[in-house]
Design a protein around this nucleic acid. Structure first.
Length: 941
RNA sequence: GGGUAGUUAGCUCAGUUGGUAGAGCGUCGCCCUUACAAGGCGAAUGUCGGGGGUUCGAGCCCCUCACUACCCACCA
């Protein structure tokens, strides 16, 4: 093995080997274990959030594969309708081409080209992250098979009456010219105004009178579409006007005054203008009062020809300005107030969304429908999805997300699934010239089903489906559905778990549950692990416009400052931000980012993976885990140095002897194995990572490797003991590597390949080896106690040495006092350890009452280690040291005694706690007595 | 307006049936000790957001307040 750990030299090599060997495909007859990839959008490249998600999923996948489960990680990508179409449109726009210039067909060719490019980038990135999906099963939401599934679901739901077409008010994006779902609308508070307009009340002949109703509005331009004014039916101020009419200013239309609860007497003036075609509330009021729907906008949100001539063609905000000015000129503008309001914007275009009247397709998720499709049964789609979570069949981790899920599920609206885009699944509906609609899997089917003559012209619906419609089918469409006999479907559905971010619980998780139950008759997964967002070190969301985005591959491979700056400042939608981003980047990464390797990144993600909590990505933490990799690397080099070409106990007929240290580390390994498995089973990757780190570094490296040195050194010629220790050294390492492999696949593979023979193991790859299982029979309590004792002994001496400024190399003679038979026995078996690790010279066991020279002191239990001062130790320093120690002990003891002296404590605390507290207090009293005695002795000198 | 989560060492975070606090990084000493200076050894560090309550005992349970973040909502 090379002297230094260089991840770039091992990672790609092993990945290629694994992939070429076909190790990612499900194998064996074990229990099926399957996770679906949350399909990345083919909009570009993977970000840190993907990296986190993928690496944790892959940890589970590798873990289960090693456990012998028949494991499938199902890969694929999502066509991501609007998002992808926008990416390609932007590229065309840069060349001054619009998609309309190209036409639908040519444009789609361009998008497919982009999809190839982006999809390849993504799969390449996934490979670099070390994830192990079965690439032969890779799917794309617009593949033929998956598109079949989409049509099948659409047709079936339509046949059952749960998909319908209707004219309704939708969220309209006037820039993208498409409807968007409620979830795609982001409302944010913005500063605006509230305008008060006076509408003249009309007399019986329809002429204006001197009486006015004052209405308040935040959207003056919509008055052109007003079809009523509403007041509360009980409002004494206005109730006499109900049934009368007002003259709509600027338009001249007579509109009724209606009484409706919607008008709140407490709010504004108590009168509210009703614009049913441009406001969701007003739409409902309009329905109740049979009001006319007057659409005044074009698809661009400009004033259309329904409006008075002077406003036609005006952009909505220009119209607003003009209308306010005109009302003012007429003396009908009563007041303008500053007003904060929630402004709805499209999450993709950022433009203000208009409620707009259009024909769209909807899925009714809540209507009661019997299994045979007739109305009247239990809600067919939403309710079973609620029940599945309620009953615990699907579990959210952490559990509090159930509330979020339920809240949404209990308030479902019909899902608008049509989008006026080109990129996506074309809606399987055909129209004839008479306007009749036919739904079917394809045109032939439609013609056959409805006996349509061959010469009847049919044209397919221009619209495509919401991208989440196909995502909702992902858990079964990727496994071969609608072919219900597909082996993969039978094997792996339902899958075991889903791992995703909270931001798509509604978009995706809920809909997969609904459609999974609906079409497969069973939940799509059992556990839903919800993870947080990956943020930057300051806790800011990573985004291109903030310029704080990190690419997981740059962390793995490293990147120089100039490239990083270039990457962050290129292709920006707001180029004016570039200077600030450049400055911040140069400040934060003056030397760029050095290469850390995939394993360190995976370890970092694992240790940050506490469910539900956002992650502040901290490069310093990352560095710590790279150092950990380096530590492992060097430990392996030590093991090789000691074991290569040596007898590592492979010949079972030769005797072996295990030292206390051997038995101790074997015991700890069992405990760690049990702990790690438990933590992974509970999705506590942070604790699993911590247990691995703790064991490898602080027990195996810090103590065990050091403890092997006296045994394996030249001074010792006990071959049986050497054999036992070498065997332990290499076997514990081998097991630890398997233990850590799911999180750190590369370094564990590389080292494992180098030591497997010495450990008596064969196999082509660590990823195919069994996951270590704890054997409690191997836990040796005596060895654990003994090594704890040795550690205390060594640390006591080290402390004196450090605090007394004694050279590390200086051999120290020690005296021992107040020892017990067990102390003596422990020392006898571990003397070599103490001599090597603490540089102990001669040891004198003082009899009780024997005089000791002035010394520095450390305690091992009740035994006192004395290091004579003569020539070595500074009296004042020792006094200071002892005083400090005594103070600490005293503080502790006071607390314990305070508790013990409290009669209520003795009375009510459980016996075990009481006993433990007494014991602790007693120990500390003894220790305190010894230290105080020692302090007096030294003071007296 | 409703809801959820968070507030623990300088920083990032653990702390799972309530027994008086831990890790990593950073800091400060001493060491190039033959696996590792991306290292070793040692040390310092906290009124666990504020207040109240339950309890023998609260970081953990209850109430309340504050701040932060996010989610949901039809307010003219």
């Amino acid at each position: 093995m090379d002297k230094t750990y260089q991840p770039e030299q091992i990672e790609q090599r092993w990945y290629q080997h694994w992939e070429q060997s076909g190790y990612f495909a499900p194998q064996g007859d074990g229990k099926p274990y399957c996770i679906m990839i949350p399909p990345p959008n083919v909009t570009g490249t993977l970000h840190m959030g993907h990296g986190f998600n993928q690496m944790v999923i892959d940890t589970l996948i590798r873990y289960h594969r090693m456990k012998g489960d028949k494991t499938l990680y199902q890969p694929g990508t999502d066509h991501a309708g609007i998002a992808t179409q926008m990416v390609v449109e932007r590229q065309l726009n840069a060349q001054n081409i619009t998609r309309h210039d190209l036409g639908r067909e040519k444009f789609l060719e361009k998008v497919w080209e982009w999809k190839e490019h982006s999809g390849n980038t993504i799969t390449r990135q996934l490979r670099r992250l070390g994830t192990t999906p079965d690439w032969s099963r890779e799917r794309f939401t617009m593949d033929d098979g998956l598109s079949d599934a989409v049509r099948e679901v659409f047709v079936r739901l339509h046949e059952e009456g749960q998909i319908y077409r209707g004219q309704r008010l939708v969220n309209w994006d006037p820039v993208l010219h498409t409807a968007v779902s409620d979830l795609e609308v982001i409302s944010e508070e913005e500063n605006g105004f509230m305008w008060h307009f006076r509408y003249p009340v009309a007399d019986a002949d329809g002429n204006t009178t001197d009486e006015f109703l004052t209405v308040a509005t935040t959207r003056p331009e919509t008055m052109l579409g007003d079809s009523a004014v509403a007041v509360h039916p009980e409002d004494e101020r206005y109730k006499h006007l109900i049934g009368r009419q007002v003259v709509l200013p600027l338009v001249g239309r007579l509109i009724p005054v209606v009484g409706d609860d919607y008008a709140d007497p407490e709010k504004g003036t108590g009168c509210v203008k009703i614009t049913p075609a441009h406001d969701f509330n007003d739409y409902q009021v309009g329905k109740r009062h049979n009001l006319e729907l007057i659409n005044i906008f074009t698809i661009d949100a400009c004033i259309n020809d329904v409006a008075p001539e002077q406003y036609r063609g005006m952009e909505r905000y220009a119209a607003r300005k003009q209308i306010v000015a005109d009302m003012d000129a007429l003396g009908l503008l009563a007041e303008i107030k500053d007003h904060k309001l929630m402004v709805p914007r499209g999450d993709r275009s950022g433009t203000v969304i208009e409620p707009y009247l259009t024909d769209q397709w909807y899925v009714d998720l809540t209507r009661d429908v019997q299994p045979d499709g007739r109305p009247g049964g239990k809600a067919a789609i939403a309710q079973p999805a609620i029940d599945a979570v309620e009953s615990g069949k699907i579990r959210f981790i952490p559990g509090n997300w159930v509330n979020t899920y339920n809240h949404w599920m209990y308030n479902l609206d019909d899902w608008c699934i049509s989008r006026q885009l080109w990129w996506g699944h074309r809606i399987p509906a055909w129209y004839d010239n008479a306007g009749n609609v036919y739904v079917g899997r394809n045109e032939d089917e439609v013609r056959n089903k409805h006996n349509l003559p061959a010469d009847l012209a049919l044209r397919q619906d221009e619209d495509v489906l919401d991208t989440w419609f196909s995502s909702a089918l992902w858990p079964f469409s990727t496994l071969g559905w609608p072919n219900v006999d597909d082996a993969a479907l039978k094997n792996f559905y339902p899958t075991q778990m889903l791992m995703t971010g909270f931001d798509i619980i509604f978009f995706w998780v809920a809909r997969m549950i609904m459609f999974g139950i609906k079409f497969m008759g069973d939940v799509p997964f059992h556990d839903v692990y919800i993870h947080g967002l990956v943020r930057d070190a300051e806790g800011q969301k990573m985004s291109k416009s903030k310029g704080n985005v990190l690419d997981p591959l740059d962390i793995i491979d490293g990147i120089d400052l100039e490239s990083l700056v270039a990457k962050r400042t290129s292709g920006m939608m707001q180029p004016q931000l570039a200077a600030r981003i450049e400055k911040a980047t140069r400040k934060q990464f003056p030397d760029g980012i050095s290469a850390h390797g995939t394993d360190a990144l995976r370890m970092t993600f694992a240790s940050f993976a506490t469910a539900g909590r956002d992650i502040r990505f901290d490069l310093q933490r990352l560095e710590g885990y790279r150092n950990f990799c380096n530590k492992l690397w060097n430990a392996a080099r030590y093991v090789l140095m000691q074991c290569e070409d040596q007898d590592t106990g492979l010949n079972a007929s030769l005797p072996v002897e295990y030292s206390a240290a051997d038995r101790w580390i074997i015991s700890l390994l069992q405990q760690t194995e049990a702990e790690v498995a438990d933590h992974i089973d509970n999705y506590r990757f942070d604790l699993a990572a911590k247990a691995m780190y703790e064991f490898s570094w602080h027990e195996y490296c810090d103590w065990y490797l050091e403890l092997t040195k006296p045994i394996l050194g030249k001074a010792n010629d006990n071959q049986t003991a050497k054999r036992g220790t070498r065997q332990t050294l290499v076997r514990v390492l081998e097991a630890a590597l398997r233990l850590m492999h799911p999180i750190m696949p590369y370094i564990t593979e590389e080292i494992w390949q180098n030591i497997k023979g010495l450990a008596g193991v064969s196999g082509d790859s660590i990823m195919l080896q069994p996951y270590p299982v704890a054997d409690t029979a191997l836990i040796d309590q005596a060895a654990l106690a003994e090594i704890e004792w040795v550690k205390a002994f060594i640390m006591g001496i080290r402390r004196i040495r450090s605090e007394m400024d004694i050279k590390p190399g200086q051999v120290l003679d020690v005296l021992l006092q107040n020892w017990s038979a067990s102390d003596k026995a422990m020392y006898a078996t571990s003397e070599a350890f103490a001599r090597t690790l603490a540089k102990v010279g001669s040891v004198t066991w003082l009899e009780a009452g024997a005089d000791a020279p002035e010394s520095a002191t450390a305690l091992v239990g009740e035994m006192q280690i004395l290091i004579p001062l003569a020539g070595l130790i500074d009296k004042d320093a020792e006094i200071a040291r002892l005083s400090k120690e005594i103070e600490k002990l005293l503080k502790n003891l006071t607390g314990l005694e305070g508790r013990l002296n409290n009669p209520a404590f003795a009375d009510k605390a459980p016996a075990a706690v009481l006993e433990q507290t007494r014991k602790q207090a007693e120990e500390q009293r003894v220790a305190l007595g010894q230290l105080q005695g020692q302090l007096e002795k030294i003071r007296a000198l």
